[in-house]
Deep mutational scan, measured.
Amino acid sequence: CHSECLGNCSQPDDPTKCVACRNFYLDGRCVETCPPPYYHFQDWRCVNFSFCQDLHHKCKNSRRQGCHQYVIHNNKCIPECPSGYTMNSSNLLCTPCLGPCPKVCHLLEGEKTIDSVTSAQELRGCTVINGSLIINIRGGNNLAAELEANLGLIEEISGYLKIRRSYALVSLSFFRKLRLIRGETLEIGNYSFYALDNQNLRQLWDWSKHNLTITQGKLFFHYNPKLCLSEIHKMEEVSGTKGRQERNDIALKTNGDQASCENELLKFSYIRTSFDKILLRWEPYWPPDFRDLLGFMLFYKEAPYQNVTEFDGQDACGSNSWTVVDIDPPLRSNDPKSQNHPGWLMRGLKPWTQYAIFVKTLVTFSDERRTYGAKSDIIYVQTDATNPSVPLDPISVSNSSSQIILKWKPPSDPNGNITHYLVFWERQAEDSELFELDYCLKGLKLPSRTWSPPFESEDSQKHNQSEYEDSAGECCSCPKTDSQILKELEESSFRKTFEDYLHNVVFVPRKT
């Protein structure tokens, strides 16, 4: 048989008469490798580009789960590009990614509803959504962080984005990388972005840091009482949809009607710091009717980097990364020049730590249904340095008659930039024990000054392991946590139920 035959053949030295091919099969003959313009397919066939392209389009058009959109890589027609490569849609070739590779997620039936953290986790790592997304989240724990972890990498949506009755959302900033909504599939009414009845939605994105392009379709905003109209108009300008909307697409009466839409800028007039305090004062603000001013709200939190936005980490279910302080308005003076500047002394802060701070007014709604208010920009203030805590785990070892090696770990709280350490030492008198000992005694162990690591005695271990207080009263049991108490109650309830079950099964009433 021919060298490319495997198993047997019907005619000697003829690659077209093989029972099976050793390498690849091409047009009725066995070959060692697939010549151009053919590609290896499933490690035994040679196919042309049209064959591989037909497989790709067949799966793409069917949208069946589990099928493969075949691509070409290293002269092979394979189910998908290997790690580190992405497909070129024009020629199906796998090309190296520039940075992290995109991950295209194809949605069944063309859309997916995100109504819980669990459903959001199914899209973790996706960068391109081939379909439409509907966000409908009523509640949950730590929602802002969970949504950002699972949806934060999405850069492109081919269909539309719909935010509907998501009472738990305060902001859409968890879509931190969303840059493009194509609108290839539109919501009824030709809408590519749809926001309806979101009672706590206050911000779409921080438009000073976020760009969003909507290729096709219109915007729809109705019944978002805490979303200011200025935020919607800003989205029109940034996304390129200005002029597409009709009169009733953006409701003037049901958007922002319960919001404090600040239209003035508060400026800080005085800032002073110490290692654990920050004193702030800002310019006074009074609405047209000074009785509408209820006070100020001061927001602050630790910020290692200057990239904080107002609604980071917030949701309507209680999660809030900001510390909020309510401040009463100052006494009002008739003389504008003698107006008191409101302020606040922030206490209990960490030394040498940068804080993000902003302040906003708290006002009631005027009778004319106009909203007044003022808010400052987010500023960054760093507390002063102070003395560091003591170095940890000092170790001293003498390696000769004239040297001592000293080692330690950095302090747990540096409280500033540590530039150097101060080492103090003092000579001590020799131990009298060394002169009084009889060095001729056998088995004498000389006193040693070398360091030995501390260890816990058996008594201390027994005390720590004991669940009861000892007789001397030195140790006591740790208080039980809520989960331990709940577990004990469940076990007790189970024992009672099981005992009742045994009584009912074992003891049967005697027939009379």
Rank of each mutant, 00 (worst) to 15 (best):
S398T: 15
G183H: 02
L298H: 00
K337D: 15
I134V: 11
D257F: 08
D377T: 12
A303F: 14
K226D: 13
I327A: 06
M235A: 09
V390H: 15
C228T: 03
F290S: 12
L392M: 15
V104R: 04
F175D: 00
P288Q: 09
P288G: 03
L212P: 03
A303N: 05
L219G: 04
T371Y: 15
K209F: 11
L180E: 11
I129C: 09
L265T: 07
E236I: 03
F296D: 03
C105L: 01
C228F: 04
Q403I: 03
W205S: 01
P329W: 04
Y380Q: 03
C317M: 10
G131T: 02
I214S: 03
N141G: 13
I154H: 00
L293P: 06
V325K: 09
S401V: 12
K226E: 08
Q354N: 09
P225L: 06
Q403H: 11
E368T: 12
K350V: 05
L362A: 07
D115K: 12
T215Q: 10
T371N: 09
F174P: 06
A259I: 15
N200S: 09
I250L: 08
A259P: 14
R202I: 01
W322V: 08
S333C: 09
D377K: 12
S319A: 06
V238R: 13
L169V: 12
L107D: 03
Y160E: 03
N136I: 02
L229F: 15
E187I: 11
A251N: 14
K409R: 12
T185R: 12
R369N: 14
L153K: 13
L196G: 06
Y300N: 08
L201E: 03
D367S: 09
I163K: 02
P388S: 07
T127W: 15
G217N: 03
M297N: 15
T273D: 01
Y372K: 11
G240V: 01
H106W: 05
T254W: 05
D328N: 14
F299Q: 06
S376D: 00
L219T: 03
I188C: 04
E231M: 08
L153H: 08
S400A: 14
S192H: 01
V308N: 04
Y167K: 15
F290A: 13
